[in-house]
């Protein structure tokens, strides 16, 4: 199944990946080949087969509701590319 250039651009936007025109073209060819291969799953009869999301059999694991160890603000900020007043600093989210 071929994926169109417009679809590749749409998915790149959903994934927040900046790709050059050349990278878009390569991605289109490679994703199309992979999707062609994956299409073989359409031949499997999956009627009445429940999906498996995980294999542990565990459901809704809770821990006791008590305060435990956690990172300090300083530790949490230690790797930040930019910070200000104890917070992560980014470019403006909204226009002025």
């Amino acid at each position: 199944m071929a994926i169109s250039e417009a679809e590749v651009r749409h998915v790149a936007r959903l994934a927040r990946l900046a790709l050059s025109d050349e990278e878009i073209a390569v991605m289109q060819a490679q994703l199309s080949a992979i999707l062609d291969y994956i299409a073989m799953l359409q031949e499997v009869d999956v009627s009445n087969v429940p999906p498996t999301a995980q294999v542990t059999g565990l459901t809704t694991v809770w821990r006791p509701d008590v305060v435990g160890e956690m990172l300090t603000q300083e530790q949490a900020l230690a790797n930040a590319p930019d910070q200000q007043d104890g917070m992560f600093r980014v470019r403006a989210v909204f226009d002025e």
């Binding site: 959903l14 994934a15 990946l17 900046a18 991605m27 490679q30 994703l31």
Partner: peptide, 19 residues
């Protein structure tokens, strides 16, 4: 950041998974 920070295979799998 993501376009330059991730290499080709990681970008490919992110694209495939997002699709």
């Amino acid at each position: 950041t993501r376009g330059q920070g991730f290499g080709p295979e990681v970008r490919r799998r992110i694209m495939l998974g997002t699709y």
